Amino acid sequence: MSRPFRSVLYIPASKERALEKARELAADAIIFDLEDAVAPDEKVAARATLSRFLAEVDYGPRLRIVRINGFDTEWGRGDALHFGALAGVDAILVPKVDGPADLDAVAALTGKPLWAMLETAKGMLNAGAIAGHGRLEGMVMGTNDLAKELGSRFRADRMPLQPALGLCLLAAKAEGRVIVDGVYNAFKDEAGLRAECEQGRDMGFDGKTLVHPLQLPVANEIFAPSPDEVTLARRQIAAYAEARAAGQGVAVLDGKIVENLHVAGAEAVLAKAEAIAALAE
């Protein structure tokens, strides 16, 4: 992963004020949403509004992802053709991906990198094949739609969704894809958001999708290496290098074994910290 994806903020493509404000927000990536966030009678106008902003507004280092409407709607193909050819778009996010064929249909209309929304039961069962698609760059958990389809109830520990989250994580990691966690709906509940971000981070997600700018500071904090983690990573690398120089295969640091796999993890921590620092420059 060459860039951080701690915070991936949804912005409605029909809201000019939100589109304007987004260029000042500390989001690592923006999903410009033409699908769920836009009412049917606003779809066509939203396409024109978003096109204008992407052409005129500098969103800086933030990755610009456009979530198009599904191909089962009257707007999906037009969205893919239009934004798939627009210079200001970094990637196309395909909603409700059930399998690789859904990505194939969009890939035939654009050369842009593709992202997939994983939010259906079929998508969960086909996560490995979806992650292995040659044009796929990232995966986004659509936990709201998934919970609705499963008929599962909300729990703070998200136990009902754990099998699906785990399947998608395995698929993404096996193929080296970015994967970001689903949204936390109660945007004023900082404690709840923090707990869910910590859970997602500990599971292995690269970041979290967000529904409101108020959620950005928590996601950016939780999905970034802490100062203590950076310090430990440097100490692990140094200890292992010293052990190797002495002809040893492993090192001991703070009473714990440090092997080459720990060094690889430490190097990943430092690379992420450096990538985050570069965004702030």
Rank of each mutant, 00 (worst) to 15 (best):
Asp36Pro: 06
Pro40Ser: 13
Asn69Thr: 13
Tyr10Gln: 05
Asp28Tyr: 06
Leu34Glu: 09
Ala18Val: 10
Leu114Arg: 01
Tyr59Lys: 05
Asn126Asp: 08
Arg67Asn: 07
Ile68Phe: 10
Asn69Ile: 12
Glu16His: 08
Leu114Tyr: 02
Asp102His: 13
Ala101Lys: 06
Leu103Ile: 13
Leu86Arg: 10
Trp115Gln: 01
Pro113Arg: 02
Ala129Lys: 11
Asp36Tyr: 08
Lys43Trp: 02
Lys15Asn: 14
Ala46Gly: 06
Ala87His: 09
Leu25Met: 07
Tyr10Arg: 05
Thr49Phe: 04
Ile92His: 05
Ala18Lys: 09
Arg62Met: 11
Ala101Ser: 14
Ala121Ile: 12
Gly84Cys: 03
Glu74Arg: 13
Gly78Asn: 15
Ala85Lys: 13
Thr120Gln: 05
Leu81Glu: 08
Tyr59Arg: 04
Arg64Gln: 04
Ala48Cys: 14
Thr49Trp: 01
Arg62Thr: 14
Asp104Ala: 10
Leu109Asn: 04
Arg67Leu: 13
Lys43Met: 05
Ala101Gln: 08
Gly128Trp: 12
Tyr10Cys: 10
Val106Thr: 08
Leu118His: 03
Ala121Tyr: 03
Leu93Arg: 15
Leu63Lys: 15
Ala131Ile: 04
Gly132Ala: 15
Asp98Tyr: 14
Pro12Met: 11
Ala87Val: 10
Arg23Val: 14
Leu9Ile: 06
Ile92Trp: 00
Val38Cys: 05
Gly60Val: 04
Ala105Gly: 07
Val97Ile: 13
Asp98Val: 15
Asp90Arg: 03
Ser51Lys: 09
Glu56Ala: 15
